[in-house]
Every structure is written in C-alpha cells, then in structure tokens.
Design a protein around this nucleic acid. Structure first.
Lengths: 190, 190
DNA sequence: GTCTATAACGCGATAGAC
DNA sequence: GTCTATCGCGTTATAGAC
C-alpha cells in the first residue's frame, strides 16, 4: 500500500516532526509530498482530515513497532523485555523521533482541544495496560493494582523525559539512565 | 509594577491558558487586556516579542510562588516541605492551572522553536536544583548525585502527570497519589 | 502612550480544465 | 486523480491622529 495517499501521510508525518501539529501548513505539506495543494484536499477533505488521518497513521505505526520488537530474539527475561519496550521510545532514530514528537504534540493539543481527549485517553490506557502486564510477568510477587500504579508512573515519567529530550533540556543518554533506574526501583517495590 | 505592560502580560497568560502559545491571536490578547492591538505592538514590537516576554514573565512568577510558599508556616519536616512544593503543582486553582498550562506549552513549543530552548533549560535546571536541595535535607543519608537524579525523575514525572491531567487522561487525585508514592520511593532509596 | 483605520499578507479552501 | 489559478477571510503589522 504505497499509493499517493500513503506518500502524503508519510510526508505529513515529516512535516509534523518539523513544525508540530499546529504548525502544519497545507502548502508546506504539498511541497514536501511533491503534489499540489488541491490534491491534498481531494484525498483528505480539509485540514482537520489531514491531521486526523495522519495521527491515526502514526499511532498504527507505533503499535506495529511495539508489537514487532524482537521477532526472533530468544525471549529474554520479562524484565529485559520491559526495559527494551520502554527504552525503545528514547532513541535518536527518525522513526522514534517522529512518533515521540507527534505523540507529544497530540498530548499538548488535547489540552486545548477536547475533541482529541477521548482517543488520547483510550490510547494512553492501552499503553499503560500493556506495561502493567509486562510488570506482572517481570515481578510476579507484586499485586495487580501495584503493577497498574507502577505502569502509570513509568509511562508518565517516560513522557516527561521524552519531551525534555526533544525540547533540548536533557541529553538522551541521561534520560535513558534515569528511566532505567526508575524501572529498577519499581521492580524492587515490596 | 502594575503598569499597562504588566497588565498585558497577565492578559497574555490567560489567553495562553485558554488557547495555547500557538493559538494566541494578537487581537484576542488586545480584547482580553482591554487595549488596542497597536498598543500591543508599541510595547512588544511583534508577536514573537509578546511570546518571549510572556514566557519570561510566567517562569519568573513560577519561581516566585515556589519561593514564597509557607511564609509563616511552622517549618514542618523537610519531607513535608518537599511534598508540599511538588504537590503544589497538581491543584485545580486558576493560578496553578495557568502556570502548568503555560509551562507545558512552553515545553511543547520549544520542541519546534530553538529560540525558546535556552531559557527553558535554564528554568528547568533551577527547578531541579531546588528540589535536589530539599531532597538533601529530607534524606541526609543519600549522596548529592543521587539527590540530583531523584530530583530529575520527580520533576519529569510531575510534568508528565501534569499534562495527563490537563489533557484529560488522568484525574487530579489519582495524579497526586502517584506523585506522593514516587516521592516516598525516592526517599527510601539506599 | 494610546487610539482608529487600514494596508499587506498568509493560508485554507474551491473552481474548473485535463 | 491531478493540476493551475484564484478567491476570501483572518491575522499580523503599520500609518497617522491625538
């Protein structure tokens, strides 16, 4: 599925990484994709449609790269898997930067746009739940509510560290170290 | 110092709380402040000047309300003071909402605007340092580098929880509970 | 310092040909 | 499906009077 529409969605992802959700200009997107502005409207109706479908495209892609991690890896310990999944989001690759940036923008936009909140809360809940399950396997001694709380703290910390990294307040390796230590601490809770 | 310029800066803070940094319109700011648009330009030159000076105003004010807490309070334990200072940021009052919202916007905008990064990194560093000092008094057994790392984790977590609260993904009392537990855990580190 | 009036422009969106 | 050309509005910014 690498048609024109998909090409435009990929271009939109790059523009959002560069300018933000609220900084995306239809004209700039057209130039980035190498098409006319009216073709954008033909495929996406209006600016809101561009954003909706691009954010959907990005979150599908994020699900995929979370699901597809370690295809043939010899299934390390659950703890290593947990570290791997969380630290995956703190890497300086184009794909991770794009996803983290777009995710942060979605979060920041939802503060002012109630329409985005429901979908955002749903995606957050899914993510927290997935981390809580990994915590359950890595730390069977703990209770389910304790794992849920740990997962909320770790994912919220990760979002906080991620935006500090992207906004230039925290070097990437330092952010990774802080997150690793926080994971270790959550696993040592009684 | 409650002149026209300061009134406009206060109005700008309210508009940013309502619309976001990138949603601020000079005309709306003028209406909010009860002045003409051209007076805005007289005082701040251009839109970028409005934003720069407003964000400076906000970070100064945040410093001040952190510094001025408990004027005559009977200096509880350092631990209680630490909790108080951090939990202060998770309250549903107009002032805290304004500061948290504007601070989150500053952070999110800096991802796309390198001009904001220096001031932001400076303010972040000041804040982390202040929390690290409180941790030192609340937990004298720990080392200075450990306190610095704890302060970075706690403040990054607080930012993460704050934006989840403001974006409707996390109820306020739940966010407060998660933060309190994280503070307790940082104080129990060996 | 502050206002009214307006210029200049960027940007979302559409018309219509191919 | 894709393009060129353009409209119309909202917004930034300025001119000039008081």
């Amino acid at each position: 599925m690498s048609d024109r529409r998909t090409e435009i969605l990929r271009a939109a992802t790059r523009v959002i990484t560069r300018r933000g959700v609220r900084g995306l200009r239809v004209g700039e997107l057209a130039a980035e994709a190498g098409v006319s502005t009216s073709l954008i409207y033909y495929h996406f109706t209006d600016r809101a449609g561009i954003l909706r479908q691009t954010l959907e495209f990005i979150s599908d892609r994020a699900d995929r790269y979370t699901a597809e991690r370690d295809p043939g890896t010899p299934a390390d310990s659950p703890r290593a898997e947990l570290e791997q999944v969380l630290l995956l989001e703190l890497q300086d690759t184009a794909e991770v930067r794009e996803n983290s940036t777009a995710w942060g923008e979605l979060r920041a936009s939802a503060v002012f746009d109630p329409d985005l909140r429901e979908e955002l809360a749903r995606a957050t809940h899914t993510w927290v739940h997935e981390i809580a399950e990994l915590l359950g396997r890595a730390h069977p001694a703990g209770t389910a509510p304790a794992h849920a709380a740990s997962a909320e703290r770790l994912t919220a910390l990760l979002e906080g560290l991620s935006v500090r990294w992207l906004s230039g307040s925290l070097p990437l390796d330092h952010a990774r170290r802080l997150l690793r230590d926080a994971i270790a601490a959550e696993l040592q809770r009684t």
